[in-house]
Design a protein around this nucleic acid. Sequence first.
DNA 1: GAATAAGCGAGACGGTACGTCTGGTCTTTAT
DNA 2: ATAAAGACCAGACGTACCGTCTCGCTTATTC
Lengths: 203, 203, 203, 203
Amino acid sequence: MSNEKGPDHSRRKERSRQAILAATRELVAEEPYEKVTVEAIAARAGVGKQTIYRRWPSKSAVIFAALLALSENADRQNDEQPVTLPDTGDLETDLKLVMRATAEEFADPAFDRLIRALNTEIVNDAALAAEYQEKLARPLDEAKKARLRSAQEAGQLNPDADLDLVLEVLYAPLFQRWLHRSAPLTAAYADSLVESTLRAFAP
Amino acid sequence: MSNEKGPDHSRRKERSRQAILAATRELVAEEPYEKVTVEAIAARAGVGKQTIYRRWPSKSAVIFAALLALSENADRQNDEQPVTLPDTGDLETDLKLVMRATAEEFADPAFDRLIRALNTEIVNDAALAAEYQEKLARPLDEAKKARLRSAQEAGQLNPDADLDLVLEVLYAPLFQRWLHRSAPLTAAYADSLVESTLRAFAP
Amino acid sequence: MSNEKGPDHSRRKERSRQAILAATRELVAEEPYEKVTVEAIAARAGVGKQTIYRRWPSKSAVIFAALLALSENADRQNDEQPVTLPDTGDLETDLKLVMRATAEEFADPAFDRLIRALNTEIVNDAALAAEYQEKLARPLDEAKKARLRSAQEAGQLNPDADLDLVLEVLYAPLFQRWLHRSAPLTAAYADSLVESTLRAFAP
Amino acid sequence: MSNEKGPDHSRRKERSRQAILAATRELVAEEPYEKVTVEAIAARAGVGKQTIYRRWPSKSAVIFAALLALSENADRQNDEQPVTLPDTGDLETDLKLVMRATAEEFADPAFDRLIRALNTEIVNDAALAAEYQEKLARPLDEAKKARLRSAQEAGQLNPDADLDLVLEVLYAPLFQRWLHRSAPLTAAYADSLVESTLRAFAP
DNA sequence: GAATAAGCGAGACGGTACGTCTGGTCTTTAT
DNA sequence: ATAAAGACCAGACGTACCGTCTCGCTTATTC
């Protein structure tokens, strides 16, 4: 006769949900992408396939949810605080730090596979692309834009610059180089992108 | 009695090869990507499945070959001449022309599906990505870099600029915006990219 | 609700099983044997191929099961009673009745195709041949031998006769003539076989 | 060597023909029947597939021709003389000799496979069955009937007996027992068949 | 505290596509 | 001119997954 029937009720639900998302992340990180099947996820999660399809409409959605949960977990570890970029007062220093870190992240095989999986699903699914924009990309972009606005106020960036454009000019080359494996993602490359972007949008 | 043994030999081979590649292009351009199956390609090409598997190891390879052939055909129509970019003497004008054209190309549903198919296959296949670089991306990039070098000589671009980097800063944002459908590809946007790139790599 | 959970469970299984066996019998009876493929069976039964392969290891086994089920159904219609031969007290009369009926059965195109299919599979598969002996041939042979034993007791057949041999001498010529289509299976022929067999094994 | 291009011409034809038939016999005798494919025959014979299909309309026909040639070769080794059965004057002795030899023949794995292959093709092909009757079965049967006629004249067999029926009663049980592997083919069994047949058709 | 749901793990089901193999036809290369 | 070699179309093979459906069983409420 508890008023916690919701939570009690959801406890089992929640356990299986987490098992599915964890299994998905593990599979995506460990296996070549063609082996990431709903059946493999269900088996690794110790869950019936129907339990997956009861919650998500397709494999794409599960994979997306798994990566979304990953980033939410990261947030939660930061005490639910929104992501923020370092702000030492010097935009160039801060951006180089962030860009070098990003380049390194892509070098991690597990992370690499996760983001490739995400992009595989997004390329041919406009709905998923929209969800990706809204739930994953935009929050991060807002954090980055906050730092850029701070730089604009500090006179380190053109106050009329379109910040979305700035972000694209800064990040898209890195992303494309990684996606197409057209060249290695070195620290020097990260620095170059920061420098050229700052030149393009200097005050 | 003929010295045209080579051509004679390839005639049947070539006919089925072209039928397969044409069928693949049509399917990719017309159908949602999950309907582009080897069986559908074979059926539309009027070809046995084995004839496909005899030449290419996987669906990815067929699709890549189909798009590669497409660009080679385009070249052939231009009298086998290598691709060149317009050179009016004014880099900004020329680049804006090219970038606007590129943005429009992506707006064509058939072209959109072709490039999405290509990227779908490339994302998880490093070998294919390398082949894409070598056979499709590099030749185009060389043409673009030729125009940039001409601009460097004309004093319209920093003579020390890394031209690969210039190309990335110019094109990658467009590509990423299209891939993730994060915003529309307008002529104004194309212009903005040219302008910011020229600012970043001004002499 | 119902206490028939067990039957409920098997109902779906049983339905698909019966659909497969019925489709197999129909195809074998209607089509030339090369058209009896697992895919055709699955299509006609409205069943996935895997549902067939989940139950039987090969096409041979499915066809055998279909014919086995046919004979079991025939039994069931006879109130589960074992097959028995007529026993009027006169062996010659009874055997001629049975042999003429057998000859007529072989003349039915559907039955003809069924037995040819069965023999096609049996010829090159010793395991299937053994199963055929045990499940189809032996029960029938036992019924026939029961009639022969009755005749032995009635002094109409040599009491020392090897009944398996008697059966072979009686039936094998008919079977061979049918299998090799070496001559028509007339009533007169059926009678001749009975007469010569009775002469061979007279008391 | 020769100016007789005609013979030269046929010699080559004949060589490839013999190679095909020999390869077929070897494959049938050595391999499980599902491995006897036209491609395997062509490969072993060192011959193009078209050279096979130029001469025979189907795989069945090739296999049949191979076995037919086998028996013709056997004849040829006997100086082209028609087959004859031993005639010591005592029918029972002679038939037991022949039946025991036949039973032993079936025990040879190579011969077993050859005859199974032949029957596999014959069961579902009436035209082939007719050809089998005419070219393989009838000549042998005529030889056997000649011996039986001699016995009739010698008063060892009913002069009114239908000799085709006698042959069937004698051989069909052996054939069926072998085909269905229902019991071993012993010398005693061969003797029993001779004895029961002679009882059935005693003068 | 027994009855009644509601949700679960398990896995069979109807389908679709895979990549392989063979049958029988048609082309090319080489003699 | 003919044959070896083998590519070609067609289509069945047996397997793997998809997304749905059914089954018992375990939990958790509800009367």
